[in-house]
Amino acid sequence: MSLEAFKTRVLPVKDKLYRFAFKMLGDSEEAHDTVQEVMIKVWNKRDEMAQLENMEAWCMRITRNLSLDKLKSKKRKLTDSLEDSFEISQGEDLTPYRTVEMDDTMKNIGLMIAALPAKQKQIIQLRDVEGYSYKEIGDIMEIDMSQVKVNLFRARQAVKESILNINSYGLQ
């Protein structure tokens, strides 16, 4: 693959990769670094890429695995640093390069989704934000389709419930 082909085929995926890494890591700087690492990895393996049927899903999978590695090493480093773990769950830095300001309800929804179990959070991101098919999500997360469906169902049920809660407590 030439640099030109890389520009037209791989670079446009960067925002999707970034969003996914950001959702997993909760830190825009680290997500940015992760995307760079993914791109370098893809570039180094560009000869294998010609045989891939779904390059985008492959890139997403690499992003996911790299993010998981980073999370693991982060956990090792900061086992008891409360401040840092706070930073992840706080919504201040939730969206660094946002075009439109969100209202409070949307911010609350963002926080609530960020608090979901990791698998459900990732599936919500892949399905409801990025619009991937079940099969693609399965490929990216290396789980089978039934697992994807079960987790998506659970995630949506949890989202539904908390939306109803936000509403009934007049938080809107």
């Binding site: 520009k7 670079l11 960067k14 925002d15 970034y18 969003r19 950001f22 940015h32 995307v35 969206t95 660094p96 390069y97 946002r98 075009t99 439109v100 969100m102 209202d103 309800t105 949307m106 929804i109 963002g110 991101q125 409801d128 934000v129 990025e130 989202v159 939306i163 109803l164 936000i166 509403n167 809107q172």
Partner: peptide, 23 residues
């Protein structure tokens, strides 16, 4: 009204991206 922000949130989320100098 209670459900609309969720879908708008998803739509908004899809606009988040890296800065233009990344490429």
């Amino acid at each position: 009204n209670s459900v609309a922000p969720l879908f708008n949130y998803y739509k908004e989320e899809a606009n988040v991206g890296l800065d233009t100098f990344f490429d």
